[in-house]
Structure formats: C-alpha cells, structure tokens
Design a protein around this nucleic acid. Structure first.
Lengths: 120, 120
DNA sequence: GATAGTACTTTCCTCTTGGGAACTACATGT
DNA sequence: ACATGTAGTTCCCAAGAGGAAAGTACTATC
C-alpha cells in the first residue's frame, strides 16, 4: 500500500506553502532585504545614496533589484526635475508591510549568531 | 565633497544587516522553508515521508537541503535500527525558533496575494 | 575643453542553483 | 529470482545569480 502525503495535503498547508513560495520569489536574492530595509530607515533616497549605504553592492545589481522591487510595487521610483537629473526611491505602503518580516528576520539572525557564539 | 553612508553606518544597522545576511545564507533556496515548515507540523518524518509531503522536490535536492539544515543545527537526523534501515528527521529546538519567522513569511505572502488579487 | 557627478545599461564572465535520470546498497516479501 | 521499499549518491545539463568594467547621456563646474 502506497502512502500519500498527509500533513501538507490539508488546504491550510497548501495555502501556506504557496504563500511562502510567492514571498520567496519576490524577496529572493542577496540584496532585496538590504535595499528595502535601507529605504524603510531612510524614507527617500537617490540611486547614489543607496549605492553608498549598501555596502558591497554594484551599480548593475542595484539597478536590477530596484527594477524588480518597483515592478512588484514594493518601492516607488520618481524622476525629479533637477539638473543634473536625480531619481528618488522610496518605500511604498505595500513595501512597508514588510517591516515585521524584516524585523523578525533580523531578530532571528541576531539570536542565531548569539547561540552559535555561546557554544564555541 | 564626497558624501558618505549615513543610515547604515550606525552600529545598530550594521548588526541588523549582518544578521539578515546570516539568516539568508542559512535559509536561502527553494525548499528550506518548506522542509522546516513540514517538520514543525509533522514533528518526526522519514526521508520518503518528506519526499511525499513536499510537492515537487526530488531526492537530490531533499538530500542536499537536509544536510545543510542538519549542519546548521536546525534539524536532527537519526538513523534507526530497523530493517530496512530508516532515518528520522525532526526539528531541533534551534529550528523551532524559526516558527515566528515562517508564520510571518506565510502571513505576508497571503496578504500580498490578496492585495494583488483585489487590484485586478 | 576637461573633469566630475548623476543614473543608468550593456557586455562579458564565472559560480551557484536546481532538476532529471540513472545508479548503489541493503532487506523484505512472493 | 524478482519486484518493492528505504535512503540516498553521482552524472550531466540548463538557467539564473552575481560581479567587474566599460559605455551612454546629459549637465555643471573649473
């Protein structure tokens, strides 16, 4: 007799699994949380500001990740009428809903590091 | 005059950024949250149980991800003295601390999907 | 005219991730 | 002997992630 899935076959688990896949596909990659976190802190920042704030990121990755985040309505991009041209990036209301998740992630990371440190 | 980073140069932001990088490096990939979530639900499961529960995963990925999670002390692996040999995977105390994060991720994914759905 | 600053995009490259399929190895049931 | 079940590993391949460097375009300043 062949066994079937029991736990994740429930409706509620299917929805949760789908939700986790959704969230991961929007937030995957090395830089998205850093960009979002920085924009939540800083409110409104230019491209060069972000390049300076986020240690290690290059122009290509920043540009690409900003596009991804804008497409998914997590940040907004506004071209300002200045000379030379400047662009302002800020977090959207949708993006702000990520704050509890980012806090939870940071909190877990800090606690995990502590627990590893105390074992050595 | 060259501008410097201002927001993320504070000590508390540096620690948060590091913590997020730590957490992401342990939890990145397509399957880790699914495996952890299933083990939290199911308590103790064999390799084949997980293969059945987690829709779409193959033996190679499951094997590799389980090793990663075991190395980081998020799950435990116990070879049972049965014939044929069976292996039991279960969540560790360390792994259980991820529950709030997984809940927050699932919650955000569900809300995000709702907000997109209502706009169409 | 040259340099520097803003905001990117494009090209080229490597490394990693993820998946399918086949294979190992052992034991039990028919 | 042969199929079935458990628990993987190994090989091969495709696609994507990530990064360095150069190029584009426009403006302002020295």
């Amino acid at each position: 007799m062949k066994k079937n899935a029991q736990i994740n076959s429930t409706r509620v688990c299917q929805v949760r699994m789908q939700a986790i896949s959704d969230a991961m596909s929007l937030l995957s990659g090395k830089w998205k949380f850093h960009i979002l976190g920085t924009l939540i802190e800083g409110n409104t920042l230019g491209f060069m500001d972000l390049l300076r704030e986020i240690n290690g990121i290059g122009t290509k990755m920043l540009s690409k990740e900003l596009q991804d985040l804008e497409i998914n309505n997590l940040i907004s991009r506004t071209v300002m009428n200045t000379k030379p041209i400047t662009v302002e990036y800020s977090i959207t209301e949708q993006g702000k809903t990520l704050l509890p998740l980012i806090d939870e992630l940071a909190k877990w990371g800090i606690d995990y590091r502590k627990s590893v440190y105390h074992k050595i």
